[in-house]
């Protein structure tokens, strides 16, 4: 978990169990989508390999994680039937697709992924539904310069000599997958999503263009707020619990020091904690950031040790049910992030 360490890895054990369960459902023949337990969608695998459009003829779009859903539903508007795979509030690292998810993707016209290896399950999943399902798979992150994950990518301050951190997600040729945590990359991703929507539904190209312009306007305003808000601040170092802000830091000239690696579930180690406490003290850092979906125990421990306070910095991997109910979205959460960043860096 992490998340503070799960010790021996009960988290892992659970994921393993969940994976077994998913595998069992798979071999049982992908039939699970029938009953429609509270699903927003009724077109299941019965729709079969065809174009899989929704009953009302709208293109069916499936996104892997929330930021892509935000873009697709914003640009698709009422014209597209958009569903997200990883449910609100679930750590995407912990998620594996279930039979109903496979059925959703198989019945979709467009499957949007980040294109960073974040969706480690994509390949297996595509094998599962077969290449001939007629689904366009689009990488929203195309064209964004990806940040490679080096074991020692400055994550632990400058004097980190033991590059002991695993590359988080454990994929080969690893890049940092958190591309969406920056308005600048979201602007690029919005263009890609628009183009993908136009490809599967060229008839409504004009409407998608118009929706995109509106959404891009919000993202540009957000980008400018970040530029303005962060430019005048002398402090540049942010201490975060989970290494998810590399793109934000690159785009706005900040420097992230992460307590844990990319995977928030590793068990913390004493010398690492000590080093971060020393860094916080030496640089007079006043706030340590933690994210909402994961327990804040570690951030609190460090803050207490170093005489600092804690603040939320949300990597926007999903919305909690409360945030959803309150009408929050990617932009409002990033606005809150900006306020907290300004507070910490003043």
């Amino acid at each position: 978990m992490r998340r503070a360490g799960t010790g021996f890895g009960n988290g892992r054990l659970f994921r393993f169990t969940a994976a077994l369960l998913a595998a069992a459902m798979l071999t049982a023949g992908c039939g699970g989508a029938g009953g429609g337990t509270g699903g927003a969608r009724t077109n299941g695998p019965e729709a079969g390999g065809g174009d899989g459009s929704a009953a009302d003829g709208r293109p069916v779009v499936v996104t892997s994680i929330y930021p892509l859903y935000f873009l697709a539903s914003g640009i698709g508007g009422a014209l597209a039937d958009v569903a997200n795979l990883v449910p609100a509030g679930v750590e995407p690292h912990d998620w594996t697709p279930k039979s109903r998810d496979l059925a959703r993707i198989a019945g979709a016209d467009l499957f949007l992924v980040t294109g960073t290896g974040f969706e480690g399950w994509t390949d297996e999943l595509l094998e599962g539904i077969g290449a001939d399902a007629g689904v366009l798979i689009a990488e929203a992150g195309a064209g964004i310069e990806l940040i490679p994950l080096e074991p020692d990518a400055g994550a632990h301050g400058r004097d980190h000599e033991q590059g002991g951190h695993r590359n988080g997600h454990g994929h080969e040729g690893a890049v940092d997958p958190h591309i969406w945590v920056s308005p600048k990359s979201m602007l690029k991703m919005a263009e890609n999503v628009r183009d993908a929507l136009i490809r599967v539904d060229p008839e409504h190209a004009d409407a998608y263009e118009a929706n995109h312009r509106a959404l891009a306007g919000r993202l540009e305003a957000l980008d400018q707020a970040y530029e303005r808000g962060l430019s005048g601040l002398s402090r540049r170092d942010i201490v975060v619990s989970h290494r998810a802000f590399a793109y934000l830091c690159r785009d706005y000239g900040l420097n992230q020091i992460a307590v844990m690696g990319l995977n928030p579930e590793e068990e913390p180690k004493a010398q690492d904690l000590k080093r971060i406490v020393a860094f916080v003290r030496e640089n007079g850092i006043r706030y340590i950031f933690f994210e909402e979906l994961v327990s804040d125990r570690l951030a609190r421990t460090l803050a207490e040790e170093a005489g600092a306070e804690t603040l939320v910095l949300n990597p926007v991997e999903g919305l909690t049910p409360e945030q959803e109910a309150a009408g929050e979205d990617f932009v409002t959460i990033m606005e809150k992030n900006l306020q907290n960043l300004i507070k910490a860096l003043q």
Binding site: R2, G5, A88, G89, D94, R297, T320
Partner: peptide
């Protein structure tokens, strides 16, 4: 299919 709002195991298993 609904989320929990938090990472359950991170709350359950401390360090």
């Amino acid at each position: 299919d609904r989320g929990f709002g938090v990472n359950i195991t991170s709350y359950l298993f401390g360090s």
